[in-house]
Design a protein around this nucleic acid. Sequence first.
DNA 1: TCCGGTCTAGTGGTCTTACCACTTGACCTC
DNA 2: GAGGTCAAGTGGTAAGACCACTAGACCGGA
Lengths: 247, 247
Amino acid sequence: MATLEPIRRRSLADEVYEQLRTKIVRGEIEAGSSLPAERALCAMLGVNRGALREALKRLEQARLVSIHHGGGTRVEDFRQSGGLDLLSKLIIGPGGSVDTHVARSVVEMRSALGPDIARLAALRATDSVKERLLEVVDRIDETEDLRALQQLSMEFWDLLVEGSNNVAYRFAFNTLHATYREISQVMTQVLAAELTDRASFRAVAEGVNARDTAETETRARELLRKGASGILELIQLMDSMKEGKQT
Amino acid sequence: MATLEPIRRRSLADEVYEQLRTKIVRGEIEAGSSLPAERALCAMLGVNRGALREALKRLEQARLVSIHHGGGTRVEDFRQSGGLDLLSKLIIGPGGSVDTHVARSVVEMRSALGPDIARLAALRATDSVKERLLEVVDRIDETEDLRALQQLSMEFWDLLVEGSNNVAYRFAFNTLHATYREISQVMTQVLAAELTDRASFRAVAEGVNARDTAETETRARELLRKGASGILELIQLMDSMKEGKQT
DNA sequence: TCCGGTCTAGTGGTCTTACCACTTGACCTC
DNA sequence: GAGGTCAAGTGGTAAGACCACTAGACCGGA
């Protein structure tokens, strides 16, 4: 009973939002083109105009469309204007499979940010964060189950982000975390090498406690490289398989 | 007539959204507390319930509030759940001055991502990007005006991001760019050392053209460090002044 | 031919009113 | 005390009307 999840009830506006967002990010609605008029759209969708407008406002907030009073609603080029939160919508491609291009991008960003987050944590972490960091690595030492290690790894990085005292990293982490959550189930095995590298987790935690920025950064980079290489190899494999299918 | 800007007309929903968002990010509405009921809120604000709901949907999209059917609307802790796009709202603190903590965070993130963006561009940039990159550095060479250099610098980095072929970096860049735009006017002088480092711009562009990843990354890091040190010194100065004022 | 104004159809913006669906907590019953 | 019942309050949906703005067609004078 541990994995029960609350069922998510979606309002009409949410459904409309998701439907339009999906069509836009998949390119089914051409960027630069105009959406049908609101009255026409809500007739097509069979919903109230208010519900539709709430959805459109969300799309505008996500910079997927731009609304002009009296001048219609145009679809923006999300690659040009989108924000980081689109990643969690893009990571799952059509058909439910992981989009390898997006996954590779996320892995690269993780590799670039992680070591600096660790470095700053070593520079600025409070005693409270340091303490909790050691507690987490203790639990990591005692844990064998990969799913549990995934969870602990996230707690570990969450603490490092908190220790870094950097709001930009916090927000980026929040978004990347949400993206990761979309695919965490299928990543468990690929990340095994990283998740079981208990020595590196501990080295980072102790580096932070010792305020050793250089060492902490290096060990964090090593830790992340294990998972990165696993994922990148898998991506390469998937891409070559897809290529083989096409030819 | 070059600096004329189109006046931005704001709908009621936009006004309501901004007002509530400001109150939330400034902590004037406590995280975890409940907002008044919709009917009460729109009476206070003097607007239609539909307009209010459009604003609330945007706040929910930005993860600033969570709405529960029948159970009220609660204010979330944006530090815990917010996305990167909040940076552009946080960078200007109350009173209109730049928030030094946020600014420092952005500078650090820029320093971490920039070199890797350049490295990946050297690895993957298309011929089109390479060519345009050289054109931009040519224009940088011919330009003296700092404001114009700011603009060119952004085009330069925009091309590197395009060349990196990394959607995560693209989205992060979009957001950071929007944040930077909020404060670019006051940053011109501080960034002078970076903006006039024409040799580094060219070295990066030529490194990309030569597919020399290591060299490109190094030169990009050098370039960014010039601006970073300028900003960080200014931040230190501002913080010490503020401290002096308080004591 | 061109420029500028005018008009109009169509679009998004706002408002009103009503009712439905869900959550919460008080209350009751056993 | 545990569990069920119910009502008040909250957000969700709906239909219809009218206002504000834009874009394009149209017209008239230079």
